[in-house]
Design a protein around this nucleic acid. Structure first.
Length: 696
DNA sequence: ACTGGCTGCCC
DNA sequence: ATTCTGC
DNA sequence: GCAGAATGGGCAGCCAGT
């Protein structure tokens, strides 16, 4: 760039390459993402500046976290764009940002084949008599058909390429606003949240994972397994792998519209057997342009991974139809369906969304805290007078809906769990009021609480349950389950979300739950000592810890706010040695981000694997370790590098138990990396015997 | 009839 | 579940 | 403060392959 400036006549000194050390009086020019690179982070004394068109906006230097910003744009202005087009004379132009439709229309009036990349101007096709039938792909081997799914795919790409939430919302709002039919709007909005099937549609999953995808791709004529392995290994991302793999095959992409894709998903969900699914998948993949195939695979695996989830889609709907953000959130909460919400917003009928029986609402979640003092300080600092404390059970979060003699239960992620707990449903029919309860389901026998493991055996069960827990078939619920309600969200026709917890609790108590149902015990705290004591007592009672709630707060569905705080008991940490490292997935596919670690068996002297973890390290630390492990790799098998045992990690976990998973015979619950212990070596790690002593 | 890989979903 | 990251 | 991405252990069900 410096050379270009000098050629253009700017009086710049001779540039030198940056060799990793700074010379006083010099400026280092680097791309924006280099500012956090190891080389630049290492410079002790420096001032940083950002050159960007966004510098015109107030607050830009805080946004970029630099000492100063200077406005300098690499975008051309209107005249510059026209001049560029005159010189390049492109066959086709796609506009992607700013006044996309207007500029494209202006270009068409100048006889240039220009269209907004996000669609929305197809209406003019006949008017302009355009030849926008085809646009060639980068590789030229496949022709990319223009179709509604290609438009969708392009929006996903644009959204994925920016990390700016506002830009994402802008792209999405433009796209959603221009969907012509309500059905397309409904489908597109739903898929943007990463769900292939609509939430309200009953069947929720497609049973397609990496294996089914691999087999589908390999069944396409011309597919070479060796090439697939290569790509899969280097990408470690099934969607990218699919795109790159298909790019090299001779396939004939056909246009696909949104309803066609919806039909495909429905058929896939209804297919029987994995072979059938693989065949249907292969049929679809070989009639898609690789770009669209990548998007399809992302949808199939249930995650677009473009920095977009329900929250942002709500914001985009708000922007697209100039709606009230709170109204959109509220309607979405009640319908449980983002597509329906979008259609409501388009017709300005958001207020028509009603609380429907047996439509679950998202759970309110608690934020983690590190110590009782953090909870106390938060409440004191915010002047919150009512601190309530409840035990934190190790069970399954359950939302129970009862209306007349019909009962349904939903999991934390709103999955219907009726089939797993028929005895609970039967017993709930006797609750004398219509209600929606939020609570925890625990396994309970002879006055002692069983562990989560026992409870989990009933999850996913859909057949005979008689072998489980049921000791007396005449009274099926006499022993096994207990539902501990901690909130009442709806009562005899009235929604209670906006009431304070204190008011909701009064009504919960008025239900007078009995039998297998009980209201959770609450302790009202007014001194820090009481909080400490409650925490100790909760652990002594065998619970996970406690939940502290602001009794004045409303129920905020789906939010992990600070109205509810959780505090869990801590286990001692284990110092473990890393014996293997693996490539990550998605945006971590070029680093070794996943570590297998071991402890020492005192008896044999061998290292025994006890777990794996990634969570807990910063990106910078992962980068440093990646560098280290690439050098210390002893052998490599697929994604797994066996490495020299020379990095000690301090591992935290919630509990430890016997397991067949690793050769130590132990496994951890929620393992995470507390610290890299550079001060320790192989000789200092903890022993298998010590780890066993922590099993409870 | 059994097994192991795969998938989804609890924590 | 957990943790870190960018807005 | 929030939403998003990427990650762990463990269970049941399903089904293709043996």
């Amino acid at each position: 760039m410096a050379e270009a400036c000098r050629e253009a006549g700017a009086d710049l000194p001779e540039p030198k390459r940056f060799e990793g050390f700074a010379v006083e009086g010099h400026a280092i020019i680097a791309p924006p993402n280099a500012i956090r690179s190891k080389a630049l982070r290492g410079l002790r004394t420096k001032r940083t500046a950002m050159l960007t068109g966004w510098a015109m906006q107030p607050g830009a230097k805080y946004r970029y976290r630099v000492d100063e910003v200077f406005p300098m744009s690499d975008h051309a202005d209107h005249t510059g764009l026209l001049e560029c087009l005159q010189r390049v004379r492109p066959k086709h132009v796609l506009t992607v940002h700013g006044y996309m439709h207007e500029f494209a229309a202006e270009l068409r009036s100048r006889r240039i084949d220009a269209w907004c990349a996000m669609g929305g101007d197809q209406l003019e096709l006949s008017i302009a008599g355009s030849q926008r039938a085809v646009v060639s792909s980068h590789h030229g081997r496949q022709i990319r058909p223009i179709c509604a799914f290609a438009d969708f795919s392009d929006v996903c790409r644009l959204v994925g390429e920016t990390s700016s939430r506002l830009a994402k919302i802008d792209f999405l709002a433009n796209y959603l606003k221009d969907r012509e039919s309500d059905n397309d709007l409904r489908l597109a909005a739903g898929w943007l949240t990463g769900e292939a099937l609509p939430k309200s549609g009953g069947r929720r999953s497609l049973h397609v994972g990496s294996a089914a995808l691999r087999r589908a791709l390999l069944s396409i004529p011309g597919a070479r397994e060796e090439r697939y392995r290569e790509l899969s290994l280097s990408q470690n991302d099934s969607a990218r792998t699919a795109r790159l793999f298909l790019q090299e095959l001779t396939i004939k992409p056909e246009p696909l519209h949104l309803d066609g894709l919806a039909r495909f998903f429905t058929e896939l969900a209804g297919s029987n057997g994995s072979l059938d699914r693989i065949e249907r998948l292969a049929m679809r993949l070989k009639t898609l342009h690789p770009t669209e195939a990548e998007t399809l695979v992302k949808l199939l695996t249930g995650d677009l991974r473009i920095g977009l989830k329900e929250g942002l889609v709500e914001d985009a709907i708000t922007a697209a139809f100039k709606a009230d953000p709170a109204a959109v959130r509220h309607a979405h909460m009640l319908t449980g369906d983002i597509g329906e919400t979008a259609v409501f917003a388009r017709y300005k009928t958001l207020d028509e969304a009603e609380l429907r029986p047996f439509v679950p609402i998202k759970c309110m979640l608690a934020s983690p805290t590190a110590a009782a003092s953090e909870i106390w300080d938060w409440h004191a600092d915010n002047g919150l007078p009512l601190l309530w404390v409840e035990p934190k059970y190790d069970g399954i979060r359950l939302q129970l809906h009862k209306l007349g003699d019909r009962v349904a239960v939903f999991s934390r992620d709103l999955q219907p769990l009726d089939d797993a707990f028929p005895d609970l449903l039967a017993a709930a029919a006797a609750i004398p009021h219509d209600c929606v309860l939020d609570g925890e389901l625990i396994a309970y026998a002879s006055d002692r609480t069983l562990g989560f493991a026992e409870l989990q055996q009933r999850l996913g069960r859909n057949l005979d349950q008689s072998d489980l827990f049921l000791t007396d078939s005449n009274q099926p619920l006499s022993v096994p389950l207990r539902f501990v309600a901690f909130d009442l969200l709806w009562h005899d026709g009235q929604g209670l979300l906006e009431l304070s917890l204190e008011e909701r609790r009064v009504r919960l108590d008025a239900l007078e739950l009995s039998g297998a149902f009980e209201a959770i015990s609450v302790e009202k705290i007014s001194l820090p000592e009481e909080l400490d004591a409650a925490f100790k007592q909760s652990l002594a009672d065998g619970h996970e810890g406690l939940i502290a709630k602001d009794a004045g707060s409303a129920y905020h569905p789906g939010r992990r706010g600070r109205s509810w705080l959780k505090l869990k008991g801590v286990m001692p940490t284990l110092d473990c040695i890393v014996v293997a490292a693996e490539q990550g997935h998605g945006k971590r596919s070029d680093v070794l981000s996943d570590y297998t670690f071991a402890v020492r068996d005192e008896v044999s002297g061998d290292l025994r694997i006890i777990g794996k973890a990634y969570s807990g390290l910063t990106d910078d630390e992962i980068e440093d370790l990646t560098e280290h492990f690439r050098k210390s790799t002893i052998s490599k098998d697929k994604r797994r590098h066996v490495v020299e045992p020379d990095i000690v990690l301090e591992i935290a976990f919630d509990s430890i138990r016997a397991s067949e998973r690793h050769d130590s015979g132990l496994a951890m619950r929620f393992p995470r990396i507390k610290a890299i212990r550079r001060d320790k070596s192989l000789a200092d790690i903890d022993t298998l015997q010590y780890a066993k002593s922590l099993v409870k």
